[in-house]
Design a protein around this nucleic acid. Structure first.
Lengths: 221, 221
DNA sequence: CCTACCGATCGGTAGG
DNA sequence: CCTACCGATCGGTAGG
């Protein structure tokens, strides 16, 4: 049986590059083609699972879409469960990607606005990835759970802080930060259920979300 | 084979009572026990599909939870697909239930607030039903689609109108009604993904949503 | 509402 | 990356 490389690593741009281990490496790094092909498989699987659902979408469907035999997928991926993990990890990576940068923005109002726009852009930009993430996240196997949960927390915490600061600065009402963060997250994220790129416009949706939360008129009752 | 009754009718309180057909009825109406038992099956199936997903959750699981044999479920339900329909139809029925009443509220601000509170209460009150509804709605068979889509449209339209009126009355910013409605719907509905009744409080969540959208402070930039 | 029982699908592996 | 092939699961039906 051929030796395969670190199948688990999601090869994300925001991932730290693999540390060079001491001594002579046993194997060369996975070839560029290998990585590219695996990314193709991940993306295609996301589309299949998006359309048919994780369980109903078969590896046969994925293989067919790639003009492969089903067994060949196992050269790149350990199992169907592993494939689900790779999709979810990638989705989280995308969402987390520019967030650190935005966290540094000094103005609370601008920061919240940027977070909202970022979320809308990210979700509507990768509907398949995020549909799989949100609708099949609970089908993740135990072994993968921990790795995901970590990044997930980082994400929610970032949102929590933005909302807290916005409340402090008085740019939004005095809401419970946790509920406020989830509400804003929901308002934008929900788009994965209804947004139709042939009809809807992400920037206008973002405008509406921002206006609803930040551009306010009536004084409190 | 025994004759069964109208398996499709969801026996919802807001459903019009079945019209009395002319002539002598062929069969008495389904017994109260029959209806009650079927509702039990629907509720249990919702819990199973909530925990394991629609495809991964088996009829065996449902039967076991009810202390039945799997085959017995078919006395109440045509198929697994039919069971999914019954759950989804029930969820929509619950959501639609009090909505007509609230539509009559004259004050735009109060009406929007009531809609928001109603949505939070409904979703958090039936997590299993609504998780199945939102996460497995696309696995509905063709034959059931139409019946669902209709009610669904009614729901979205009601929200559309509330938002339109709120914009006109100037109680929220001038947002695109469609995006505004989906944003508010998302803000509240999203709770089915994270709300934990042992830790969270539905009324406070509703407060936060209302405050975020309606109780505003800063003037538009 | 139950006891069998069938048919089909599908993830995964051997071995090249 | 492919050709077989196995094993298990599961929805559904017959017949009572």
């Amino acid at each position: 049986m051929k030796v395969r490389w670190d199948l688990d690593s999601p090869s994300q741009p925001n991932e730290a590059p693999a540390k060079r281990r001491p001594g002579r490496p046993r194997l060369e790094a996975p070839s560029q083609e290998y990585i590219a092909r695996r990314d193709e498989i991940i993306a295609t699987a996301a589309e299949v699972f998006h359309q048919k659902g994780y369980d109903a979408g078969t590896l046969e469907d994925v293989a067919e879409a790639l003009d492969l035999r089903r067994a060949s997928i196992y050269y790149y991926v350990r199992s169907k469960a592993h494939l689900l993990f790779l999709i979810i990890d990638r989705a989280l990576g995308l969402a987390l990607d520019e967030l650190d940068e935005y966290t540094k923005l000094p103005d609370p109002r601008e920061r919240l606005e940027t977070f909202i726009r970022h979320q809308v852009r990210t979700i509507t930009g990768e509907p398949s990835m995020f549909t799989v993430f949100f609708d099949h996240r609970l089908r993740l196997e135990q072994e993968y759970e921990a790795r995901i949960r970590d990044k997930e927390r980082r994400y929610v915490r970032a949102y929590l802080k933005v909302v807290q600061d916005a409340v402090k600065a008085g740019v939004i009402g005095k809401v419970d930060p946790r509920y406020g963060a989830q509400a804003i997250l929901g308002m934008t994220t929900w788009s994965y259920k209804w947004f139709d790129p042939t009809r809807d416009n992400a920037d206008r949706l973002a405008d509406s979300c921002v206006k609803l939360v930040l551009d306010n008129l009536g004084a409190p009752a």
